[in-house]
Design a protein around this nucleic acid. Sequence first.
DNA 1: AAGTCACTCAACCGCAGGACG
DNA 2: GCGTCCTGCGGTTGAGTGACT
Length: 329
Amino acid sequence: MGRPPCCDKSNVKKGLWTEEEDAKILAYVAIHGVGNWSLIPKKAGLNRCGKSCRLRWTNYLRPDLKHDSFSPQEEELIIQCHRAIGSRWSSIARKLPGRTDNDVKNHWNTKLKKKLMKMGIDPVTHKPVSQVVLEFRNISGHGHENASFKTEPSNNSILTQSNSSAWETMRNTTMSHETYYNNSPMIFTNPASSEFQTTPFHFSNHSNHLLNGTTSSCSSSSSSASITQPNQGAQTPGTNFCWNDYLLSDPVLPQNSQTQVVGSSATSNLTFAQNEHHINSLAECSSHNNIDTNASGTSHSASSFVDEILDKDQEMLSQFPQLLNDFDY
DNA sequence: AAGTCACTCAACCGCAGGACG
DNA sequence: GCGTCCTGCGGTTGAGTGACT
């Protein structure tokens, strides 16, 4: 038995709000304040669902909201936060005074995602698209160099976004690392090296790291927010980088279940962003691609995996208590 | 000028979790 | 412990609008 609707939807108005309706809400809130939104429509004389009133207030009418466009600093902060915690828009919005989760979400979906894709960054994983392509190839069994794409991926990564042109581009061309190197120089921090750099998107040419209080302060080894991928050596071009390797070397996973321990530095350099990123990656990997992490050679059960994440979570929080102030999770 | 397409963003929907009786 | 109500959240939709043909 499902929950009854919050209101009689057949008798409430839907759609855009009129100035008159806005004025009613503003007048009511000015006198009584916010709270108990289910009663507000009746008391304020509105033929609207309480939920709709609350949304109108929180997303548009609140006096502390900004209605101007996003600044470059705000955009940078959104990208950094998204890389760290994924699509937790309310948490990200709390970092941006005057912005709502809806604002942030819309801005991400309409502007920032495209901006990243233009730069050759997969907006879901925040990895260079070339790396995502390599991983997909391995997952889908098209690991050899000249394999053509035969099946489309099923996750929400750049390969399946509404931006089908990106997919078409990649399907029709074998993406060379040089292509991405040339198209997105910001990604690759070592242009002189012939080694393929896998450092995800990083505003390295910005002097102000807006997230110093979050990602950077959490790093025990670096002042930048750049992320060093685990098992980096396996990701050089021409080698058979495998998504499973990525999982197996994940610092979140139990060490004794990893067939190959990457090295203590990989764990000691672990940042908050890394952990979040990996957890998100794992979740996406398993949910979107139906990849069973147990099938990757690990022997832990699902519950022990969750326990492991929680343990690591506790460990991180004890080491970096400031996280509690930065993100609610 | 008219039609089509792409984009933006306000609003809706359904679910989850917390508070409370 | 259970049911109900309220609120918060993230994903999705669709009306409005401007750009393009």
